[in-house]
Write a protein that binds this DNA or RNA. Structure first.
Length: 932
RNA sequence: GGGGAAUUAGCUCAUCUGGUAGAGCGCAAGCAUGGCAUGUUUGAGGUGGUCGGUUCGAGUCCGAUAUUCUCCA
């Protein structure tokens, strides 16, 4: 392994001195790799009749309150909320999670210490209305102490002490179950903050019981009891597992009611568990992170290890961060700064790689922007502390992909694509840095010499507008003996935050429940209208608008998902009719949006989908499938869907492909698609077939899509297009009528976007083209060869332009010849005041500048009428400009008054235009007066 | 969702407050060297993102729109 032996030795020694039970611990877990540890967890719960499910994609869809999965329970939220039925009463998994904000995990802190992460794995076992506290506690104890062999004397557990305000009792059940395994002084009582878990302000909740492990060396354990350090931010006494027992439902008024079905929701931090079992003082020292860290260390010619060499050191590095200095620690070449940089990189590359593999590309808004920011933070640390001046992150992807190929195969399968996207992002950020450096240089150059302070507003502008990191600004300023006004910077940042907060204020009122029913039945595949009851509704207020959300017992409305937009339509009965403006999914619950609430929400209605719109959408969606299959055929098997939008206007389809799709390839795709349309292939739809069966049939599934175990398969000719899909489709391809690809563009590195139209829109497209062409043709006198007619016209136009230019030049030349001899001499200069006839503004300018060039020490004032408007040009020789005898710009302002206009220019040349031709004479007289 | 910025020659970017659209690289041709790397001279290349407004005059000011970058949520 990579780390010094003596540390392990000291640990081993201490373990031997503890109780008998720990003897096997050391020899067993020394060999345990992270992959083995994970497998043991899943095997353990599989044996206890748990269904093992793969991790849900890390990017969340259909939940307005969440961008990424931030806990093990997030993918099961719809089940807890009662929006989806329970399929398996017992589940276990390892879930990819991402946390970038919140009070316990600020992105800027990750890497500074040795145990925070952006991405982590949460091992979880779940009971949905099945087993409860007794089994959960027994199994967690069995796994930790008998399988993983964690010494009993290092374990502490906590139980909920109760809460007077909520009238919640002490969790005596959990306490008594724990008593069977743990000494009573190791069962600690926790308050509502630590030991009562709530999903949100309302909804399922309940007491929880945490398991903590004391990893400190024995001599420290003797000095201070571990019990006093539990939940006390000690980096060596850590919570590894939380068992949540959901038994209450909190209503909007704050009251708690027992849940009919009780659930268990547990989460064990995988990285922490591995750290404990591998006996490390830091998560980053485990074999989860070391392969990456060692690669980075090698590339940067740096050792990782100062933190490891000083395990008992207080990890407060704020002073280092402030001063930018490097501490001298046992390893001569390593330092805390480079260690931090390596941890940042090791952490962030995981986040970036897995989110991209799950379909989230770096971008400039929302989830995509979060990924971009994390990527940039990693690049920044490499750039600043490890001297990486060229892209390097992308080279780590293969290491990760191999490491996780068993548990998260999606990365291995898209290794090349993910690396390419990261490389492109790195390059683009290095460009951003370069531009920022240039801007900062300019700022420093322009800073007043009598101060060493740089305006905080300017630094904020660099950060806000040009994305130049603040700490780089500070570093560079420090190197030049400058500093910035931090107060100003902070104020500007606060203002920005306030603006954003005010703009996003959203006020969601409580659901008004008319009828308790678990789920909405979707009937929209088979019918576009049906009788419905409103189950519940609520009002939502945002800054700019106000609307209502309605939930029905049954609905024909397709809720936006899988790229297909939500249906619109009406809700009608004998008394009223209201418009449904959109349909969205919230945690798998279809929600209908309307601006107007029915007068009697409890009445029955007919819900009717806008049929022509739905028809257009279905046509575009089916066409998307045909295009997808054609693209795979024409471009190759590497083509994967990376995004899709289907509405009634057009379809947009993003694919992974490393070069432009050529015109010829587009043509072949179009041709193939239109053949399939003409074949009029009937839709074959398989509803509710097992996911495994669908895969074996060869149906196309997407990366980053969360599939249930029952899926729907859409087939247009089983040898051509077979996709897992929840969208709506035409009954036969002939209904698409016509499909035309109208654009092919790039959206990100390795991603191309195809846009196409079908049906009525495609027909209209061709009609308009034909009409435009007819008009062009008739404008060209119905020429047989339109192309040639246009080429001829263009050529003729160019030659005429040249002729005019030549002719104008001749006029200018002849004027030049006569006028250059018309100058009047004064002692210091020659001058000319003259009205001329000129064909264009350009010619007039050329004449004036020509005279300036040809007549030494001259002042030239010319007036001409061009396009019925008077115009004055003044040229002053450079020698007269430098001697400050005349200033063309000043002269012209005086003269422009006479022609009711304005003018200006430089000292050597100025021009003015006006409205009053009558004033020319007066202007000429005035000019002569000034010059003679 | 809200704020800021950018869009000018094939590429990278100038053009201070409205008044003569430019540089470097690249491209083409000529010359120099036996040839090449190269040096040098000349030249071509622009509806200044798109649309509208203010002005005698807009790349420059204002508004809209598109795209990209960036920060906040």
């Amino acid at each position: 392994m990579f780390w010094p032996l003596y540390i392990q030795k000291s640990w081993v020694g201490s373990r031997f001195s503890s109780s008998k039970k720990t003897r096997t611990f050391v020899s067993y877990n020394c060999m345990m790799t992270a992959n083995e540890i994970r497998k043991i967890f899943l095997d353990f719960f599989a044996e206890k009749q748990h269904q093992i499910v793969p991790s849900a994609p890390i990017v969340v869809k259909n939940d307005p309150t969440l961008m990424f999965v931030n806990s093990g329970m997030a993918p099961f939220k719809d089940i807890f909320l009662g929006n989806s039925p329970i399929k398996y009463p017992r589940i276990a998994d390892s879930q990819k999670c991402l946390r970038v904000s919140g009070k316990h995990n600020d992105l800027e802190e990750v890497g500074i210490d040795t145990y925070h992460h952006t991405m982590f794995e949460m091992l979880g076992n779940w009971s949905f209305g099945d087993y409860f506290k007794k089994e959960a506690i027994a199994w967690s104890w069995e796994l930790l102490t008998e399988i993983y062999k964690i010494p009993v004397d290092r374990i502490y557990v906590t139980v909920f002490e109760g809460d007077i305000k909520d009238a919640l009792p002490f969790d005596i059940e959990s306490f008594s179950y724990w008593q069977q395994y743990v000494a009573e002084d190791r069962i600690l009582r926790g308050n509502k903050k630590d030991n009562f878990w709530e999903m949100g302000e309302q909804g399922p909740c309940g007491p929880c019981s945490e398991i903590h492990v004391d990893c400190r060396p024995d001599h420290e354990r003797l000095l201070i009891s571990g019990a006093s350090l539990v939940n006390n931010d000690d980096p060596q006494v850590i919570e590894i597992w939380n068992n949540v027992f959901m038994q209450y439902n909190r209503l909007a008024d704050g009251s708690l009611h027992p849940l009919p079905a009780q659930h268990v929701d547990t989460g064990m931090g995988f990285e922490r568990l591995v750290r404990v079992l591998q006996e490390k003082t830091s998560n980053y020292d485990t074999d989860i992170f070391q392969p990456i860290i060692q690669a980075v260390a090698q590339w940067s010619n740096t050792n990782y290890g100062s933190t490891l060499a000083a395990p008992e050191k207080n990890h407060d590095t704020s002073s280092m961060r402030e001063a930018g200095v490097v501490n001298n620690l046992p390893y001569a070449e390593s330092s805390e700064a480079t260690d931090i940089a390596m941890r940042v990189i090791a952490d962030h590359i995981r986040t970036i790689s897995f989110t991209i593999a799950d379909g989230q590309l770096p971008g400039n808004a929302k989830a995509g922007y979060v990924i971009r920011r994390i990527l940039r933070r990693a690049v920044r640390y490499g750039f600043q502390f490890l001297e990486f001046k060229k892209p390097f992150l992308y080279k780590l992807v293969p290491i990760l992909a191999t490491q996780f190929k068993e548990v998260f195969p999606e990365l291995k399968k898209q290794e090349e694509f993910v690396a390419k996207v990261i490389l492109e992002e790195e390059n683009s950020f290095l460009r951003t840095l370069e531009i920022g450096l240039r801007k900062l240089d300019e700022v420093i150059k322009n800073n007043p010499v009598n101060t060493t302070e740089i305006s905080g507003n300017i630094a904020f502008e660099l950060y806000d507008t040009f994305g130049f990191p603040l700490d780089l600004t500070q570093l560079i300023l420090r190197e030049r003996g400058l500093h910035l006004n931090q107060k100003e910077f902070d104020a500007a940042m606060d203002a920005q935050k306030n603006r954003a907060r005010n703009a996003t204020a959203i006020d969601t009122e409580d659901w008004i429940v008319l009828e308790e029913k678990a789920t909405t039945e979707f009937v929209g595949y088979d019918t576009l209208a049906c009788e419905v009851q409103i189950l519940k509704y609520r009002k939502v207020k945002t800054k700019s608008k106000e609307f209502y959300q309605l939930v029905f017992n049954t609905t024909p409305f397709y809720a936006e998902s899988g790229g297909q937009v939500g249906d619109t339509g009406t809700l009608v009965n004998a008394d009223e009719s209201i418009v449904i403006t959109d349909t969205k999914k919230e945690n798998n619950l279809p929600v209908h949006l309307t601006d107007q609430l029915p007068l009697n929400p409890a009445a029955s209605f007919t819900a009717r989908v806008d049929a022509s719109k739905r028809q257009a959408i279905s046509s575009n969606h089916s066409a998307t499938h045909l295009i997808h299959a054609a693209l795979k055929e024409v471009l190759g098997a590497h083509v994967n869907q990376k995004g899709s939008l289907v509405n009634d206007e057009y379809l947009r389809f993003d694919i992974s492909h490393f070069q432009k799709v050529s015109d010829e390839e587009i043509e072949r795709v179009e041709k193939m698609v239109s053949e399939k349309i003409r074949e009029n292939i009937a839709l074959e739809e398989l509803r509710n077939i097992p996911l495994e069966e669908a895969r074996q049939m060869g149906a196309t599934a997407l990366f980053g899509e969360k599939y249930g175990d029952q899926v729907r398969v859409i087939i247009f000719d089983k040898n051509y297009s077979m996709e897992l899909c929840g969208g709506t489709h035409v009954p036969a391809t002939g209904q698409i009528g016509l499909c035309k690809i109208i654009a092919e563009t790039a959206v990100a590195a390795g991603v191309r976007r195809i846009e196409a139209i079908t049906s009525q829109n495609a027909i209209r497209y061709f009609e308009e083209k034909a009409k435009a062409f007819d008009e062009v043709k008739s404008n060209l006198n119905n020429s047989k060869d339109v192309l040639k007619a246009i080429t001829d016209l263009k050529e003729e136009n160019a030659s005429l332009k040249k002729k005019i230019e030549k002719y104008e030049n001749e006029i200018v030349a002849s004027h030049l010849n006569t006028l250059k001899d018309n100058y009047t001499s004064k002692e210091n200069y020659n001058y000319l005041v003259q009205q001329v006839t000129m064909p264009s503004v350009d010619a007039f300018k050329n004449l004036t500048l020509g005279l300036k060039q040809q007549v030494d020490t001259s002042v030239t004032i010319l007036i001409s009428v061009i396009d019925h408007k008077p115009m004055i040009n003044i040229a002053v020789s450079d020698s007269l400009v430098s001697s400050k005898t005349f200033h063309a710009g000043n002269l012209i302002k005086e003269l422009a008054l006479f022609i009711k206009g304005g003018g200006g220019g430089q000292p050597g040349y100025a021009s003015a235009g006006g409205n009053e031709v009558k004033g020319i004479d007066a202007a000429l007289i005035k000019a002569l007066e000034i010059l003679s």
